[in-house]
Structures are given as C-alpha cells and as structure tokens.
Design a protein around this nucleic acid. Structure first.
Lengths: 76, 76
DNA sequence: ATTTTTTGCAAAGCATGCTTGACATTTTTT
DNA sequence: AAAAAATGTCAAGCATGCTTTGCAAAAAAT
C-alpha cells in the first residue's frame, strides 16, 4: 500500500518519532507503514489522516485493490 | 466501531453473503463487523465503502477515537 | 570532522483480523 | 405450518498489525 505519509510529514518537518507520538503509536510502526512493510489498521489510518487534516482516501493509495470489483459480474 | 454497513446493505436488499462475495470476503467476516465484534482492516473497509460508492469516512464511524488528538499538546 | 538526530531493519511476542466448518435461532417464502 | 434463506455465534488456526529492544547506517547540526 502506497501512502503520502512521508511526503506530508516532511512538508511539516516532523520526524517519524513526533508523528508516532502524535497519533499514539511507535516510531517503528510509522517506518514500517511508510516503507510499505505492512498496511495500517483502519483506526491508525484514520488518526494519521486526521492528524494531517485529510481524509483516509487522501493519504492512502488504494489503486492496488480496485481490481475485479467493478466488472458488474456481482450485481443483481 | 460503528458502521452503516447493515443500513446500506438493507437499503439495497443484499444478504451478508452477497456483500461478502462482492468484496471478496466471507459471510462471518461481514457479520462480525456489522455486529461490532471487530474492526475491519483498511483494505476491507475500502472495498466495502467503494462497493457502496461511498468513502470510508461515510461508512465507518470514528467518533470513538477522536480523543486527545486535537488538544494541541503535541504540536511544535 | 565530530556529535546528535533520524531512519531502516530484525527478531520475539502479543493483539487483532480473517477463514473454515458447524450448529442454533430468527426471518422470509411458499 | 412447513421449508428455505438469512443471521448470530463459537472454536481452532492462520495471517497481519503492532510493540519492544537493540543495532547499523544515513542525514542534519554543531
């Protein structure tokens, strides 16, 4: 999952540590998410987005999962 | 975590099973999320929201985690 | 150039999300 | 009323998210 976290963080000149504290998590968690090691949970994604004054969709890039969802083969 | 999933699902007269298939998960997962047994992952939350043509923030209610985030004590 | 801060990474362990299968109860259909 | 479909739940097990400690390398500050 791609994110704009690093970009937003640098714009505001925050360290990973500062962001982590602000959203109630650890530095390693922020690193892992920025680096794509794993995907944030919904609550954490929300806190991060909200911290930057943005929506989840504005911070996280979901283009990797938009497949096969909209081919209409599952509609009634 | 509260959600509007059941509400949206019933509006469109879908069963849990149908929604589950549409978003690539199982009936039990939908039940558990609707009933509040646990919180959806970010990817699943996205797929569900997108299925209904809404944003994550429109489907999931985060009012339970907006605490202590905006008291300015963590700003530079 | 040396020191300090920031970042990447790894392993162990715990917490949470999800699947599968199965059964009981409720709701809808006939 | 009887049959069928939909929902809630439980347990076991696997997958993923997160924390903690600790170390190494890169970047920023002095």
């Amino acid at each position: 999952m791609k994110t704009k976290i690093r970009e937003l963080r640098k714009q505001r000149k925050l360290s990973q540590e500062e962001l982590a504290e602000a959203v109630g998590t650890t530095r390693q968690t922020i690193t892992s998410i920025e680096v794509g090691k794993y995907t944030a949970s919904l609550p954490l994604a929300y806190k991060i987005a909200r911290y930057f004054g943005l929506t989840i969709e504005e911070v996280f890039d979901f283009s990797d999962l938009e497949d096969g969802l909209w081919n209409n083969s599952n509609r009634n």
